[in-house]
Simulated assay, not measured.
Amino acid sequence: MTDEGQGVRTAVRCPDCGGNAVRSVGQSLLHGRELRWDAERFCPRCVAVCCDWGQEAAPRDIREALLTTHGPARLRLSAPPTDPAATLAALRVLREGSGLPLRQTRELLDELRDFGLSGTAVEMAYWRVRLTERGVATETADGFGRAYRYVGPPELWPGDDGGTGTGRGQPVRTAGEFAAWAEERAERTAAELAEPFTFVVGLGGTLRLAPRRSEHVACAGGELVLSAGEIGFRRSRDGWEVETVGNHSTDYCPDTTSWPAVAAALTLVGLPHPGAFTHAAVFRRCPRCGNCNLVREEHYACAFCDADLPEHWNVDEVALP
């Protein structure tokens, strides 16, 4: 018995004959409370069929296909965050279900309480069932469109473990964390704060910051993002605020429609912002030559082969029509 499910069909190369095959992947909630994933590949040329499945968290490639196609779902606590009983029960559920250390489980709880716990629709249904069983009331929240995966050069990919270098961005979740981060840089050199910083917004709504010219994929630890770009700050009479913000990131090429996720992350931190991207980048992939373009002055023509570019975002279309 499957209560909830989500799937996507993708085009892949057949490992047996090299032909064009179709891979169907999905995730479902079995018996109302158990996660299950499945994958099936079919090649019409050699009629090869391959099936696989598991009753645990979905593999990274399947999860990414679902998130980039359907977008992340969000789940939040209905009870006030000051309710200690709900907080403790939620913490126990998250730790038991994730198997993560206490520190990382607390980060999940912060997401659940503030921005909303994010993941596939099936994963959020899984957590909602488990939380309800412990008497923790939750509610679904509006999403922020699609998730974006890394589309840059393979040599910059930090690996499935997110890399261990110093490029990973500093998470900033509260006004106090941002003030401490900004003051530390102001003490080193005023010039550092005068330039924009690299930023990403993770699936959990956390703003991550890194020095300018840092790779966005390193700042995100290789994870999917809700948006990415560059951001500049200034100090006003009332404190820090966002002066400039844009979505220019050739690592993720996010659409201009990713702004609501950025606005939500900045609001969570308590940073006043302009209300929209001050520098909006329009990315399109050429359907003829496959190159990614940065559209300038609404001239939708490929800079490499002069073919017409589509009006809709198409840099990383995963699903088959």
Results as ranks from 00 to 15, higher is better:
E230N: 15
E215T: 04
P154K: 12
G163Q: 09
W157P: 11
A182N: 03
G221Y: 08
F144H: 06
R234K: 07
A186S: 10
G202V: 04
D161C: 05
V172W: 11
E241D: 12
W240D: 00
L203W: 14
E139W: 14
A180D: 15
R208I: 06
S214G: 05
G143D: 05
P196Q: 02
T206Y: 07
R237F: 14
P211N: 07
T198F: 09
F233A: 04
V136S: 09
L193D: 02
G205D: 08
A186E: 15
A228G: 10
R134V: 01
P171Q: 11
E155G: 05
G176A: 15
L203E: 08
R235N: 10
D161H: 12
G152M: 09
T140G: 14
V242I: 09
Y150T: 01
C219P: 01
E155V: 11
S227F: 01
P171M: 10
T206I: 13
R134S: 11
L207V: 04
G169W: 12
E187R: 15
P158Q: 01
V136K: 10
G159T: 00
W181T: 01
E195I: 02
P196F: 06
A228I: 08
L209F: 07
L209I: 13
G165A: 06
L209N: 13
E215G: 04
L207Q: 09
R185S: 01
D160Q: 06
F233R: 07
T140H: 10
A179E: 11
G152P: 13
G229V: 05
L203N: 12
T164Q: 11
L193R: 01
G159A: 03
R185V: 04
G169N: 10
L224V: 12
P211W: 03
R146P: 01
R208D: 05
R149M: 08
G159M: 02
S227D: 14
L226W: 13
L224A: 12
L203K: 12
T138Q: 04
G143E: 05
R213W: 13
E241H: 12
E183K: 11
G143S: 08
A190F: 05
G163I: 10
R234Q: 07
A228Y: 05
R173G: 02
E183T: 07
E195R: 07
G167V: 05
G229H: 08
G221M: 05
A218K: 02
R134W: 09
E215A: 09
F197I: 00
T189D: 08
S227R: 01
T198H: 06
R208M: 09
A182E: 03
D238G: 01
G176S: 12
G205T: 02
A180G: 10
Q170P: 00
E187H: 08
S236D: 09
R146S: 07
G163H: 14
Y150R: 03
A186K: 03
R146G: 00
T174W: 14
A194S: 11
R213E: 14
F233M: 01
R213T: 08
P171R: 14
A137Y: 10
S214A: 08
T164G: 13
P171T: 12
R234F: 00
G165I: 00
A180K: 14
G145D: 04
P154G: 09
R185F: 06
F197Y: 11
W240Y: 04
Y150I: 02
F233W: 09
R234G: 00
R213M: 11
L156H: 11
G229F: 10
L224K: 14
V200F: 03
V242K: 04
V136D: 03
P158L: 00
V200R: 06
T189C: 11
L226N: 15
R173H: 08
